[in-house]
Design a protein around this nucleic acid. Sequence first.
DNA 1: TTATCATATGAACAACTATTCATATGTTTA
DNA 2: TAAACATATGAATAGTTGTTCATATGATAA
Lengths: 126, 126
Amino acid sequence: MKDLVKIEQEVADGVCEFIHVHEDIVKKVEKAMPEEQELLDLAEFFKIFGDSTRIKILYVLSQSEMCVCDIASLLMMGQSAISHQLRVLKQMRLVKFRREGKTVFYSLSDDHIQTILAQGMEHISE
Amino acid sequence: MKDLVKIEQEVADGVCEFIHVHEDIVKKVEKAMPEEQELLDLAEFFKIFGDSTRIKILYVLSQSEMCVCDIASLLMMGQSAISHQLRVLKQMRLVKFRREGKTVFYSLSDDHIQTILAQGMEHISE
DNA sequence: TTATCATATGAACAACTATTCATATGTTTA
DNA sequence: TAAACATATGAATAGTTGTTCATATGATAA
């Protein structure tokens, strides 16, 4: 948050900060703004899909449940890297898992994820 | 890409890399994999929405076209920061702009963007 | 129990990215 | 023309993030 002294100085410097705005538009949109937190959450949500390793993991899991080694093999990446990313996906509830002996099988936590992937793919191939 | 020597060493170390996999699953999914580039593009696409400043810009532009100063004022951020992010959004064709005198008005380049925002919001509020 | 194996995780490092600062560009007005 | 102004942009910086390495955890088998 800027203080008035700084704003005044910027105006003196000829910078537009908050002065030469279209007040009618700004005030109207200001009222329609969602909670700050909602927009932060939204960005966090999309950020998960914004990494190629995670996208690939989500894609292969959309085809079949799989253990960590299967995914590492498919993506030709180290077990540790996959495990770290699965942790992120787990924390954000995008994947779930079941244990079978020493092996842990991961899968998408719900169909919604697949829908979003498909929606994105549709969009970029236009 | 790993070389054989490294893989052999990892096996010797007791690391799973590519050996103790479920071959049937892996081979089946391998065939269904899209082009590497398609998944990279998909991640790049979602990455744009994965930043709170850009999400906010997209949101306010979904309400009304706006100049750079209007956006900076609404988000209480510097003109330069907004301008830099608008450049990213412009390059990725998420926003378009028109010039009117000294002022540049930005707006969403198509309705699809708004749909994706709404889809995401719907998803996180579940 | 001990050895083996699949997965998880902390620390370190490298790469990337968002913001700020200073300044440039291009438009309008005097 | 010169001054004022809205926006754009290059460079520097600080913060974030993904991968690797080494090691820990927890489960099974001998």
